[in-house]
């Protein structure tokens, strides 16, 4: 692998007709990290991933996958779960996983053995010899996910992996992603669900309108917004707003405002002097969702919900 980067992309551009769906995206995915690509619907996440994997060619820009300029040269070391899940309905679950492993370089016998073990571990041992068409959507999705990691790839690319999964399977998938990272694999996944990204990502990129708007850690994203103070007065009164900062807004029984640049002490002194007292006080870091809204804009964030 070139340096410590599992994936690099520089100035990736893709046009569909006159529209620039991806417009000069740069990405640097560290090896061994869980890396999230976040963005609202239509932001260009899937197109970016497909270019990285060599499914489509970029109109401009360069990318490397596990150090190779041609993504297909690294295909045996990559696992991929596409956004639009696809399996042969007439194949049995075990065969489907073995088929995907054979495409990625494992022999069929090893693929079948591993498929059986993985299905058993995932609680789907009873469905190993069931045809895909007889499985529920969630089970089929899990089979495809197992098929994308059966060959123990160095890089796992997951496009919207959580969509369509119930909460139990979402949690199971989160555990699997962490386990794969602990094994040493790099995980690159796209999502528009911030909770997963906040829990999982070592680093992330936010894409909107085909452009990369942010790149960094979750903490760095959250740090884009100032800390928020949540204050609950002991004696609320009509004149309390005069003792609070100008951006204070009611929030339940209390008030919420941005942590002043000089600290909270001066504000608290005013409140206590005015006789409002303190019933509750917390200083909170904004979540990734708030940071995402700030980065992509409220309308785009709403579209991502």
């Amino acid at each position: 692998m070139a340096g410590d980067w599992a994936v690099t992309a520089e100035g990736l551009v893709k046009r569909f007709g006159e529209r620039r769906v991806v417009d000069g995206v740069d990405l640097m995915v560290p090896a061994g990290a869980i890396y999230g690509v976040l963005g609202p619907n239509g932001a260009g996440k899937t197109t970016t991933l497909r270019m990285l994997l060599g499914i489509i060619e970029p109109d401009d820009g360069h990318r490397t996958l596990l150090g190779r300029a041609q993504p297909q040269d690294a295909s045996d070391e990559v696992g991929y779960l596409p956004e639009e899940r696809g399996l042969y309905p007439a194949m049995k679950a075990r065969e489907a996983i073995a088929f995907m492993s054979a495409l990625r370089g494992l022999d069929w016998r090893t693929g079948r053995t591993r498929a059986g073990e993985m299905l058993e571990a995932a609680g789907l041992g009873h469905a190993a010899d069931e045809k895909i068409r007889k499985l529920s959507k969630g089970m089929a999705q899990l089979v495809q996910l197992l098929g994308s990691v059966v060959h123990l790839p160095a890089l796992i690319v997951l496009d919207e992996p959580f969509s369509g999964l119930d909460p139990v399977n979402q949690e199971r998938l989160e555990r699997l992603i962490v386990a794969e990272r602990d094994r040493g694999a790099t995980i690159l996944f796209s999502t528009h669900i911030m909770a997963h990204a906040q829990r999982l990502c070592d680093r992330l990129a936010v894409i909107a309108g085909g452009k990369r708007r942010f790149e960094g850690t979750v903490e760095e994203a959250r740090a884009l917004l100032p800390q928020q103070v949540h204050y609950v007065p002991h004696h609320p009164g009509p004149d309390i707003a005069r003792a609070l900062p100008a951006d204070a807004r009611p929030d339940g029984e209390g008030w919420r405002f941005t942590l002043p640049a000089g600290g909270i002490e001066q504000t608290l002194k005013h409140l206590i002097d005015a006789g409002h007292g303190i019933s509750g006080l917390s200083i909170e870091r904004p979540g990734l969702h708030e940071a995402f809204v700030r980065i992509v804009g409220a309308d785009a964030a709403e579209a991502a919900r």
Binding site: I55, P82, R85, G86, L103
Partner: peptide
Amino acid sequence: KVIEVLAAA
């Protein structure tokens, strides 16, 4: 939709 899996591999 298997083509996406095949085309990536």
